[in-house]
């Protein structure tokens, strides 16, 4: 009886210590990133390379996601609004949903799957093949070389991708609403400009920047802490995607509560 109580206490204690260690490690890395991000020389070439990887190479998947989200939202909204003859509100509803929520959240989730996972896998492989140790040996800081460019790229490119997603999503809803479902063009656009203001777009972009920070930070952290060869790299990649996605969705709630 006493033995099993001690076993439960032991397990609980270990779990608490593990969580505290992870949080401490994350905090330490975050402070280190903040310090190196403002310390010259700035790794402009690496930053541009990562911006291309996170931003330009995610463009296709973000456009597809935004376009079809806008289209399906218009389709669903049309059937709902038609019940009380308010079809012309479809445009404004979709535009609000895209700029405030769907644009930043779906873009971030897609980039997490594409680029966040790649960050964890690449840094994890570098860790297990001693390439990160090689950087230390050559008196170079891996945080400055590897992590800072990825985090900066995430924070800059997510808002840029979100603007694209918002635009194609609204275009998709216009195409479905006006082009296929015969909603009055003038009413569609007038309602959209009446109900959506710049604050909605700005707040959505701030969210996207925060999500960019989350997905790049967690991807890099998990990669940097990888142990145990190929299996460890796979585990780090999966954890990076799952933790980033959950954190983005939880943060989205709190950011929405604060902003709107």
């Amino acid at each position: 009886m006493i033995g099993s109580i001690f076993a439960v206490l032991d397990r609980t204690g270990r779990s608490v210590i593990h969580v505290l260690e992870e949080l401490g490690g994350m905090l330490f890395l975050f402070v280190s990133i903040a310090r190196w991000a403002v310390s010259p020389p700035f790794k402009i070439r690496q930053i541009m390379k990562q911006m291309e990887f996170v931003g330009v190479k995610s463009l296709f998947v973000v456009i597809l996601t935004g376009l079809f989200t806008g289209m399906v939202s218009a389709l669903q909204g049309y059937h709902g609004f038609k019940m009380f003859s308010a079809e012309s509100l479809v445009g404004s509803t979709v535009a609000l949903a895209m700029t405030r929520e769907l644009g930043p959240v779906l873009t971030s989730l897609m980039v997490t799957a594409r680029a966040g996972s790649a960050m964890a896998a690449e840094l994890g492989t570098m860790k297990v093949t001693e390439q990160i140790d090689a950087l230390y040996v050559m008196a170079s800081n891996p945080v400055k070389h590897l992590i800072v460019p990825r985090v900066i790229a995430g924070v800059i490119m997510l808002p840029a991708l979100t603007i694209v997603s918002d635009f194609v999503g609204i275009f998709g809803s216009y195409f479905v609403g006006v082009g296929l479902l015969d909603i009055n063009k003038g009413m569609f656009i007038r309602n959209m400009t009446k109900f959506v203001d710049l604050g909605d777009i700005y707040n959505g972009l701030v969210k996207a920047a925060v999500f960019g920070l989350i997905l790049s930070f967690i991807g890099c952290y998990k990669g940097f802490k990888t142990t145990g060869g190929a299996e460890g790299v796979g585990k780090a990649t999966t954890e990076a995607v799952v933790i980033s996605a959950i954190t983005i969705l939880i943060c989205d709630y709190f950011l929405t509560a604060l902003m709107f």
């Binding site: 492989t125 570098m126 093949t129 001693e130 390439q131 090689a134 230390y136 040996v137 008196a139």
Partner: peptide
């Protein structure tokens, strides 16, 4: 420590070249 490391070179087991 970084200054001291400049005195060193190291050849890793799998060479650890940057991919």
């Amino acid at each position: 420590l970084n200054e001291e490391r400049k005195k060193f070179g190291m050849l890793f087991q799998e060479a650890a070249l940057f991919d």
